[in-house]
Design a protein around this nucleic acid. Sequence first.
DNA 1: TTGTAAGCGTTATCAG
DNA 2: CTGATAACGCTTACAA
Lengths: 352, 352
Amino acid sequence: MSNVTISDVARKVGVSESTVSRCLSGFNVRNAEAIRKAIKELGYRPNLVARNLKSGRTGLVALIVPDITNPFFASIVRGAELAAGEDYMIQLINTGEQPEREEWAIQRMMGQVDGIIYVPSQEDSEAMTDVTDRSIPLVFVDRLIKNFRNIDSVLADNLTGGEMATQHLLEHGHTKIAHISGPLTSTPGKERAAGFARALKAHKIKEDSNYFVESDFTVLGGYQAMMSLLSLPTPPTAVFVANNQMTIGALKALKEKAIKTPEKMAIIGFDDHELTDLIDPPLTVISRDAHLQGAIAMQTLLERIKGGNQFPPKRIKVDVRLIVRGSCGSTCRHRETSTSNANKVLSASTRS
Amino acid sequence: MSNVTISDVARKVGVSESTVSRCLSGFNVRNAEAIRKAIKELGYRPNLVARNLKSGRTGLVALIVPDITNPFFASIVRGAELAAGEDYMIQLINTGEQPEREEWAIQRMMGQVDGIIYVPSQEDSEAMTDVTDRSIPLVFVDRLIKNFRNIDSVLADNLTGGEMATQHLLEHGHTKIAHISGPLTSTPGKERAAGFARALKAHKIKEDSNYFVESDFTVLGGYQAMMSLLSLPTPPTAVFVANNQMTIGALKALKEKAIKTPEKMAIIGFDDHELTDLIDPPLTVISRDAHLQGAIAMQTLLERIKGGNQFPPKRIKVDVRLIVRGSCGSTCRHRETSTSNANKVLSASTRS
DNA sequence: TTGTAAGCGTTATCAG
DNA sequence: CTGATAACGCTTACAA
């Protein structure tokens, strides 16, 4: 905490506080040189808190995510930070998917930050009533809350993703296909499951409720889900796992039971990782540009902070793509397909 | 930004601002009920910035790390956040290992936060002159800056870690052992390399400069380093890689060249990951409790914020341990060893 | 217990 | 261009 204030500088130079302030803001003042010298000598540093009180902005954006330890969210955060540039700093909060913690975070952030980027755990959360009341800028990333349909969101094309994943397994001749899904109360959990169902339907395969396990997006959850699938009288021959963490758990279960992939069990995950290339066999996944998703979210938030409600709510969906490796079996027609070619272009990913 | 202030509430109830303020602080006031009601109706939320200006504290702690995308740093951050509880929020900054960015971050944080937890990229950085000048609480994690020997730090026992890793390779009969090191200008880079050298020396093996590649802690760096080792006339038969990212790169190189592990090349990494279990073969690593390291750092910082300079600088080292999997060859005497048994106990990990 | 008033450090306004 | 003065929203002596 810097205890030397602007008035110390002013006194030392023999000018008024306003002059020093103006000098700092880049205006032409008479004793500019002397002032700069005094600032250095005294080690003066403007108190940003005071400045913020005056200006009404904090230069802070809250990023509320389930778990920064999940590389996917880490990438979101990184992307958002880069998009923020030097104007806004990131205030990070991990919620551990706990709604109470989310509510607490939202409450605490209001009035402390200029905007919030939020990954809610539940679509029906009530955590945010206050947020819209005070109309503090907010953007949902990756997931959203149902009752707030008029708020900006930057999701992935989960429906297509789930469909592509399942389709990929179907193309390898599987018919006994299971889905380890995330919580159906969450956006990606619900949408990816819907994609799964849609692909099955398109191939006239009727859903077997035994082959649908709703889990919780955690490693342990994925492990348990796979274990329960393996203990079925007739286990599936292929499984689509709805996120990266559960996929790790599922793979651990397969390894523990010494089930050969893809021979005895084909597996496709959602979200990529630097290491998925190196596991045995390399993991086939549906992926997307998390960095980009975070960047778009930040960009949208900043527009909202600047422009207020000048423009209607944005509902952006980032493209997903299939990355074929070894975990679903050998060669396939396509190596890598995407829902569109313009994945890297910010504007091109905007829909609806 | 909440535009309804404490005076709006006061006016509505017909009391003074101070009364409302006191009510908020938990004091007994006459119209407490009416005040609470008015607060709810108006949707009043205290402006924390104003509060901070008065109190001189921000409730913010800056966490300056190279890259949150590296799961190791993510764990550090998570551990720190948990240790902070509800009193302090985390302000996150990624530096990308760029000293200029670190300097900028430090400058910007001062006067905006109550303390800083910092992972500097270089031991000889000048980024922090101002920090000590103003005596804003600071704690180094994982790495430190040389010229600031009287500042708290929470490192890992890198020397022992490097030694254990190398020792482990030696015990498998290797003599042509290489080290892909981090930058020798960074604390862990230097110390792990020192551990490597010490273990070789203890076994009377003289260092071959061809077998020592200084890299940069990145995936690409690790890849290139391994490639260069493989192109040697007589490549090493084992390699100790100094961090997780470079290990991924090194493994990619091995895979690309179809070099069998551990038969043709044994490999041991530094820092564990949920997926290292699943790669082929499972990766043997030196590991430590990053969560704990972050937690200790935060705890130390908070003590410093509260207690000022009541106590001498702490230099804490967290224990490392060897996790034996398959990448260094078959069975070995020990499955898991640690530099001490009390790794989980905060106080027990404190040294010097 | 309550209200009044001063002040946290800065910047914006306004007259000079 | 400059300097006094008034805010920004809140807390806290101080006096009642």
